[in-house]
């Protein structure tokens, strides 16, 4: 359940709704606003702090961390996990390396994301 709150805050920081240094709502405020328990929001803030996306100052509440690259680092982590999961599926299907590469190319072609234009495949 706290993962939903983590995702929401990460999305807002990455979208620039909440800027580095900006104060986050207090735990109680966010809990009441989103209709979830205080402990859930507390847990989400702890995770976000561990990930370096927010910083908590004693008695002053939490702010969005000054290093925006943390948000990027989280995305990179998510990508690594998805790729590992894809490799696990491919292994179970008995796909060869070239076959998996071909499948990835197909997905890239189908999705037409900017990634297909800017960056070549790096490992």
């Amino acid at each position: 359940m706290y993962q939903q709150i983590v995702d929401q805050i990460t999305a807002r920081v990455m979208a620039g709704d909440w800027l580095p240094g900006q104060a986050l709502p207090s735990i109680r405020e966010l809990a009441a606003d989103s209709g979830v328990s205080v402990i859930t929001v507390k847990r989400a803030y702890e995770e976000l702090e561990r990930a370096g996306l927010i910083a908590t100052r004693q008695g002053k509440g939490s702010v969005v961390a000054e290093q925006p690259e943390q948000a990027r680092a989280l995305l990179v982590d998510a990508l690594t996990q998805s790729l590992a999961a894809a490799v696990a599926h491919a292994t179970r299907l008995g796909l060869t390396r070239p076959a998996l590469h071909a499948r990835l190319e197909q997905v890239l072609d189908a999705s037409e994301t900017p990634a297909t234009h800017h960056e070549g495949p790096k490992s």
Partner: peptide, 21 residues
């Protein structure tokens, strides 16, 4: 959704109580 803590009763006994997360 709402609870910080959970208390779990069964057959008149408290079988678990803990921080929800």
């Amino acid at each position: 959704q709402l609870a910080d803590r959970i208390a779990f009763l069964h057959g008149g006994r408290l079988i678990a109580h803990a921080d929800k997360e």
